[in-house]
Design a protein around this nucleic acid. Structure first.
Lengths: 217, 217
DNA sequence: ATACATCCATACCAAATGGTATGGATGAAC
DNA sequence: GTTCATCCATACCATTTGGTATGGATGTAT
């Protein structure tokens, strides 16, 4: 059985773990438990044991397990995706160079724990989308926002004549997101960073092929 | 709670459901239960109720739940992946045209049930890879075989001068697999076939960009 | 000082879980 | 006819699950 120690540092770690109130502790512990075991198999007892919080406190802050799960999505995972996948897009100069640098940077930043656990958004989505509509809509909204943010960058890039006209921004955005997610999935299963690097190289090559002025391949 | 009726037709359905022996019935029912609920939350009681088989029979054929899960991977999922993702590669004429036709065909063949449940290999891998090494190695082997099979087609294509020399076959293979898997994941969460089509269009564009003689874009 | 809401601790519960122990039915071997 | 292995049915079990009921502590408003 895999486990995640309380002091483990990993890419998907939420912010502000220090000085959390009871609700925050529960949210953080639930996030980790869900990331490792999935929602359905996430054990409330484990969460309570790790935090030292009692069951009375848990059910004071959350009406039931499902609402705790929703809160994890809304308040922890959404924040993580925004910070790691959306916010960086805003600081791109040349978008193609920006994407390539982002891929490179992400590949370097991932620890082995990150690889083994995979993207929390993806893991939860795969598990819960067919089972619970509340989870599905929440997770779908996060994905949609991500896709749109990438598309916006590409729209800007096309207006500035940086990528070829044949590229549809939204189509390209969804495809790029699929590559990133697929690469994380492949690396997770193979437990091998090379899969990540291969996908990074593949996406980089794709990006270089759609820019107007040929870049440094 | 999502459910899967016994007579439901979907892309991932295993072969030869008719006239199954007890073991086969259990395997098939377990496969469906796992596909919907994941392995950890797959209920043996559900499997028994649906098949009409008793618990004594189950534990006669399988020593425990884990080995039942392994058997599902080895005997059902591996077969499905081979049939849907690997075997078609052997009949490609021009590989680029073949891939594009495959993407188109797959997009048309998927039912809404297929979309909602996603790829069984991917779902199981995301859930169990960090938790159980037996699952992980089995699933990783299936992925590796798939990647290699795509790479083989691309190697042949490059030898025949059909794709540009800058493309590394294995890198491209892993990237293509990532796109396919990522697109299925996105379609599953959004419950929208458009995500699939976007990724299909993106991959098609990528493929057209790496062929030597410009194709019909 | 009293009333009240917030916050949490303890004890308990019905249901479901995977797993086991045991015995019966059936057919083949000798 | 006896033996033995295969195949399966029934009853039972310990453990864990999410969830609840109740009461106490603490702070705040009046």
């Amino acid at each position: 059985m895999n486990d995640l120690s309380d002091n483990d540092v990993y890419w998907w770690r939420p912010l502000e773990e220090t000085e959390l109130d009871t609700r925050g502790q529960l949210l953080f512990a639930a996030y980790k438990e869900i990331h490792v075991n999935g929602f359905q198999s996430a054990s409330l007892s484990n969460i309570l044991a790790r935090t030292g919080v009692t069951k009375g406190a848990l059910y004071h802050h959350f009406p039931n397990k499902l609402e705790l799960g929703y809160a994890v999505v809304d308040e922890v995972i959404a924040q993580r995706i925004h910070l790691n996948f959306i916010q960086p897009l805003e600081h791109f100069g040349d978008p193609i160079d920006g994407f390539i640098a982002f891929i490179q940077g992400a590949g370097d930043a991932f620890s082995m724990t990150d690889i083994e656990l995979g993207c929390p958004l993806s893991v939860l989505a795969q598990e819960m989308a067919p089972i619970d509509e509340g989870f599905r809509t929440r997770l779908a909204a996060i994905y949609e926002k991500w896709h749109q943010s990438i598309a916006d960058v590409l729209i800007q890039a096309r207006q500035n004549g940086l990528i070829i006209d044949e590229v549809d921004p939204y189509t390209m955005a969804v495809t790029m997101a699929a590559i990133l997610e697929g690469s994380l999935s492949a690396a997770k299963v193979s437990r091998n960073l090379d899969k990540l690097y291969h996908c990074g190289a593949g996406l980089t090559q794709f990006l270089n092929l759609i820019r107007t002025q040929p870049g440094n391949q």
